[in-house]
Design a protein around this nucleic acid. Structure first.
Lengths: 219, 219
DNA sequence: TTGACCATCGGGGGTCACCCTGAACCGACC
DNA sequence: GGTCGGTTCAGGGTGACCCCCGATGGTCAA
């Protein structure tokens, strides 16, 4: 890896900044192309097929998706290319969005030339590269699925077993007749249960029930 | 951060390895406790409330969840504590599992004492710490959603602007009359738009529309 | 100018959702 | 034994939903 330079395309809407990046990167890196908006970035990446794209997060053009749009569009077209986001923003939303789009790292523009070169090399080798503090945002966004199992529901406990059964089907969009067929009871009985559910949960329609159940991940 | 030592609990099922970790960590780190299985780890963490837990991934005891189980159990109990996974395994599944459980980093046991000390300090400061190559596993597991974005646009673009507006309100549970009042149009016009939306999306009721919109996160 | 699409309305009608009262059976509890 | 709650079902009613058939006017492109 010391024998071959890392081929890089720099995407940023400011000419001066691109010149600065080009001047700051050391001999391990070869800037093979530049682009200044979403469209020209995609074209340049497809043409040069670089190892790494240094990608500004906020870009003109395209459908307003900025750097994340570029990464998404090129993910299938150029599988060997990795993306390193480079932005003034250190907002968690920006970081998570572009990482979700497929970028392998995110550094702020306060970085030094040497550190940026290191980050580019690391990303080229398949590793991740983050400015301090930013990696935590990604991990925070990552660990937000299996943590809510312990939540008990006293509202749900007020429903009888049969009422819960009917409630789940109704919340999933089943019609009364379909619920009746599913549970081998009459439509009128379903109506009775639904009325009881709505009354006990203090809801007024099956639509509210759907949202209520969705919020509690009961679907 | 040079004035205060980072307080650490070391969790590993091998006494010899714990001794090695203790001997390898430098003066910035203070090992305040040790544990050798899931149960004793949770107890030690609750007792000492360390800044960082060095956590072996494969542990005896508990419900077989290993280090991930420890991290999950302690997430709510000791919010100030961060977890750094430490394992011989460099398998992607192990890495993703323990990160998903809340760990802020993952290093292999091939690490040097100096690098491990650095990683502990970085995690204590809220940053992430990964051995080379391992961070990529997490990012790979993270970017597994953008496939439905393109499909969403195709389907959604077939709706006119007004139809999308009506669709969002209907999907949120608004009644026709409420939508009419919100958009200053007649109930009949709302009906027309809803019919067009259902026909274009090949749905048969507003309930299916709600699920359709929820799947695409349009709410 | 014509055609296509969109947004805005209306009548009519069939189905569905929701509520009301009322009732029967069963098991648990006092 | 009486009371209470759960489950089952019925008739009747009102409004919401969803479709069919129309109609008018606007914009935009061929």
């Amino acid at each position: 890896m010391t024998t071959e330079q890392v081929r890089v395309v720099v995407v940023d809407d400011h000419l001066m900044f691109r010149a600065g990046v080009r001047a700051s990167l050391d001999g391990r890196i070869d800037v093979v192309g530049e682009a200044e908006d979403v469209g020209s970035a995609i074209a340049a990446i497809r043409e040069h097929r670089p190892d790494v794209v240094l990608l500004d997060v906020h870009l003109p053009g395209g459908r307003g998706g900025g750097g994340a749009e570029v990464a998404r569009e090129c993910a299938d077209l150029t599988p060997g290319t990795r993306f390193l986001a480079l932005s003034v923003s250190d907002a968690a939303d920006d970081v998570v969005a572009v990482i979700r789009a497929g970028a392998r790292g995110y550094v702020t523009k306060a970085i030094t030339g040497a550190d940026l070169s290191d980050a580019v090399v690391r990303v080229a080798q398949g590793d991740a590269a983050f400015s301090p503090r930013l990696a935590g945002f990604v991990l925070d966004a990552f660990g937000t699925a299996p943590a809510d199992v312990a939540e008990r529901d006293d509202e749900l406990d007020r429903l009888s077993a049969r009422e819960q059964e009917v409630m789940r089907l109704i919340a999933r969009g089943y019609a009364y007749r379909e619920v009746a067929g599913e549970l081998f009871i009459s439509v009128k009985t379903v109506e009775t249960h639904v009325s009881a559910v709505l009354r006990k949960l203090q809801l007024s329609s099956r639509h509210e029930l759907t949202r209520w159940a969705a919020q509690r991940k009961l679907l």
